[in-house]
Simulated scan of single mutants.
Amino acid sequence: MTVIAWIVEGTWPACVDAVAAHAPENADITLLHVADPGAPGAAHGAFAGLLGRAHPGRDPGTAMEHQATAAGERLLTAAAERLGRPCTRRERSGRAEREVVAAAEGADLLVLARDGDRTRLGPHSLGPAGRFVVDHAPCPVLLVWPEPAPGTATLPPPPPLPHRPQDR
């Protein structure tokens, strides 16, 4: 069994705990982190466009890339330590939702945490990236709450019943 766990700052412990609880001992586990190249790219562009190209060693985008890589490595190391069993650590770069879907191709299970409004039950508990992954994943998905789930009293109200002419 191949299991992919999407490791994201702030919610990764819940994903790792879910893998530990639900993946068989002999599962091939991959901890996946996706770095967003947007901020370093913007910094590269700003430096080149506004500050010139005379001093490429001062490009803040390069420093941001190194910091993002180091942060991703630290996150994956902490996740692997928490898991406490053999796993593969994988770093990808790009649009997170698309990279996660691509990485899940051929997997038997994808584990991810809710990334939206976690104060109540309902569709808003998934943000745009999480919704995209859930809707497009090429394998079964285990969706976990990063903290205890809100109570059922937070369910949104049901939609109104459609008006039927025979009810008049």
Rank of each mutant, 00 (worst) to 15 (best):
Q67K: 11
Q67E: 10
A68H: 07
A68V: 12
A68P: 02
T69Y: 11
T69F: 12
A70L: 08
A70H: 04
A71D: 14
G72R: 09
E73V: 14
E73I: 04
E73F: 07
R74F: 05
R74T: 02
R74K: 07
L75G: 08
L75F: 05
L75E: 03
L76V: 01
T77H: 12
T77S: 12
A78R: 09
A79H: 05
A79D: 11
A79C: 11
A79K: 06
A79R: 02
A80R: 12
R82W: 14
R82D: 08
R85T: 10
R85A: 04
P86T: 10
C87I: 12
C87T: 07
T88Y: 02
T88D: 04
R90N: 13
R90E: 14
R90D: 12
E91G: 13
E91C: 15
E91H: 15
R92Y: 07
G94E: 01
G94S: 04
G94M: 06
R95E: 01
A96F: 13
E97C: 14
E97P: 12
E97N: 09
E99C: 10
E99I: 02
V100W: 00
V100K: 06
V101H: 10
V101M: 07
V101P: 14
V101K: 05
V101I: 04
A102P: 08
A102K: 11
A102G: 09
A102W: 03
A103C: 07
A103L: 11
A103F: 00
A104W: 00
E105Q: 08
E105P: 10
E105V: 15
E105W: 08
G106Q: 09
G106N: 03
G106F: 12
G106C: 09
A107P: 11
A107N: 12
A107I: 03
D108V: 03
D108F: 02
D108Q: 04
L109C: 06
L109E: 06
L110S: 01
L110F: 01
V111R: 09
V111C: 05
V111D: 03
L112A: 05
A113H: 06
R114V: 00
R114Y: 00
R114I: 01
D115T: 12
D115L: 14
D115N: 15
D117A: 05
R118I: 12
T119C: 04
T119S: 13
R120Q: 05
R120C: 04
R120E: 08
L121T: 02
L121D: 00
L121I: 06
G122Q: 03
G122S: 03
G122T: 06
G122N: 02
P123R: 15
P123F: 08
H124L: 15
S125D: 00
S125W: 03
S125L: 13
S125E: 03
G127P: 07
G127N: 10
G127Y: 10
P128A: 13
P128Y: 07
P128D: 01
A129H: 00
